[in-house]
Design a protein around this nucleic acid. Structure first.
Lengths: 224, 224
DNA sequence: GCAAATTTTTATATAATTTTTCAAAATATA
DNA sequence: TATATTTTGAAAAATTATATAAAAATTTGC
């Protein structure tokens, strides 16, 4: 089962390309499990476009950054493409992560089935509340936030999720970075400062809502 | 207190501009509450850049789509800018929303303080579980999913959040659209199909993680 | 009170990304 | 075998982002 999916990677790949390929990867995974996907051998960019909502040309261009995987007139071999995408995205590897914040959002994240399925394992949950430390959610123990840094260091964890309130988010990020974490997914509605070599991805729910609202108001305005 | 923040809106505004302005808006809000922000009258694009992490040129360019709000040598008047941003983003209005899914994520969203603060009011939470219907989370009653469509229609709600598992997400979206919802924030890890005139914004947590992972692997590769 | 220096915006130019268009390759069909 | 159809990959055009230069307002020094 040791598949070898090689791809070139010379150029500077746009951020958005990775996002789109990630969506393709997920949709491909879902498709493979369907009745149709089990028998089908190849898939065209137009078909991928339909299931992802991403423009077909864009998909081809994004893939072209990494090589030529399709055949003209035919499309892309489904299994191969999935393997290549996994290799590109690094999701063929297993990734250990830590989660900080055992509130409602933290709980939601721990019980999120998508993680395990896609190779992410939550190795530890951390919180500062006496009431929560020592307890378990979904079988994973909640540790004291003060042990975060050493835990990250000894377990060589590279990925962390911040699910704490605004005010403690920066402090948590600092601890993560000090422990050696390189990638942070931040749910606190605040811009995190971080050194070079670290990547932070902030998801702010009200900003996402606000973006939607803009198009709502913009559409109702120009009713031409 | 009826402020009038006018701005032009002829051009086609890039999607990302709205996202960035939304981040600026939030950071400005946070800044206004700080000691420094209370006394300061103007703010430069460089200062906004520091608190948002967004390139200063980009900020000016984004604002320039809507008019000239700053003064050379001085910067932007803080309060005015905030008012203008709110007007642009539509967040000066109040928005009623519905939330579908009363699981952990739903609970986290209901108790999320950012909503109320930014003008979003959750008018109803919906679920299909007998065990949950009729109960309350954070004082908001959980209704039967079957009443979603009529609820949305009679209350003229335009914004909905999907926090249900993958399999029911499309069905929920259909009900929302049928009831007249125009903007959907989707947390289910699936691409939602929707008619023209509706806007859907999907937040997939594992895709966001996967993007981070790419840069983790890409960085370790080209250690040149 | 006026000129030079500083700050910071707006305008312009360059670079990167996305979208569109087109030619080549593989297959199916007559 | 020639033609039509499908679909990729590559080139061109359009859009968007970043960097640079020019203009305006203010402050500082004389």
């Amino acid at each position: 089962m040791t598949e070898n999916h090689s791809f070139k990677n010379d150029k500077n790949i746009p951020n958005h390309t990775i996002h789109r390929l990630s969506i393709c990867n997920r949709c491909l995974e879902l498709f493979i499990e369907t009745e149709q996907g089990k028998t089908k051998k190849t898939i065209s960019s137009t078909e991928i476009s339909k299931i992802t909502g991403i423009n077909a040309n864009q998909i081809r261009k994004d893939l072209a950054y990494f090589g030529e995987f399709g055949k003209r007139g035919i499309g892309y071999p489904i299994r191969d493409l999935h393997g290549t995408l996994k290799a590109i995205l690094g999701s063929s590897r297993k990734w250990d992560i830590v989660l900080v914040g055992a509130g409602n959002l933290g709980k939601a994240l721990v019980s999120y089935k998508g993680f395990q399925k896609r190779g992410f394992t939550i190795k530890g949950v951390f919180d500062n509340s006496r009431l929560k430390i020592g307890k378990r959610i979904n079988g994973i123990e909640i540790y004291d936030i003060h042990s975060l840094r050493s835990f990250v260091k000894t377990n060589e964890i590279k990925v962390g999720i911040i699910a704490v309130p605004l005010k403690s988010a920066q402090k948590v990020a600092n601890d993560m970075v000090a422990g050696g974490i390189k990638s942070i997914l931040n749910f606190a509605p605040v811009t995190i400062k971080y050194p070079k070599g670290v990547k932070v991805n902030t998801i702010d729910i009200s900003i996402e809502l606000e973006r939607l609202i803009y198009f709502l108001t913009a559409n109702s305005k120009n009713s031409s």
